[in-house]
């Protein structure tokens, strides 16, 4: 069963543990700029929103890559190969969610890879605002609906 990150915005307290865990996991640092998950703070609304790649089916990033550097792994994650990525950044403008970002210190792009099937952000979340669950029980529904609106201009009928 494919699993996916599920984010329940209502339970996020803005502790940023996910951000630090992600940075630690991928970059051996505690640097929010190196995290593949971000937490946005909305002061007026008093809300926090963890935000990362949904591993969408459309995979704009993968299609836009000129060097075949983005592939789908066994967990359904779209994964960047550092060996193949040349840092051209086309995927960073192609992804309509803005969840592929350029990392100037490596000269490559970075994105959520689901940590190979055991996401550090979900493990670090103290309130279960981020969980790693079966794909059919939870989706990033709002993002996916939006994905439908943003599709690369295609409408297909059989």
């Amino acid at each position: 069963m494919q699993k996916t990150l599920h984010i329940n915005v209502d339970d996020c307290t803005g502790c940023y543990q996910c951000v630090l865990a992600c940075s630690d996991e991928h970059d051996k640092s505690f640097n929010p700029m190196k995290s593949r998950i971000q937490v946005f703070k909305f002061e007026d609304e008093g809300r926090f929103v963890p935000y990362t790649c949904t591993q969408c089916d459309e995979a704009w990033c993968q299609k836009a890559c000129p060097t075949d550097a983005i592939s789908v792994d066994a967990n359904g994650a779209k994964v960047v190969s550092d060996a193949l990525c040349v840092g051209c950044k086309v995927c960073t403008i192609a992804c309509p969610f803005g969840t592929v970002n350029y990392n100037a210190s490596s000269g490559k792009v970075i994105k959520c890879d689901l940590c190979g099937g055991d996401p550090a952000c979900a493990k670090a979340c103290p309130t279960d605002a981020i969980t790693f669950v079966n794909a059919d029980t939870a989706q990033f529904d709002k993002m996916r609906n939006w994905a439908g609106k943003t599709d690369a201009g295609t409408q297909q009928s059989a």
Partner: peptide, 16 residues
């Protein structure tokens, strides 16, 4: 700027 720039595409193309 490199952070989340793809969102600009998303906002424009979804006509949000």
């Amino acid at each position: 700027r490199t952070e989340n720039i793809g969102i600009l595409r998303g906002l424009i193309q979804s006509r949000t």
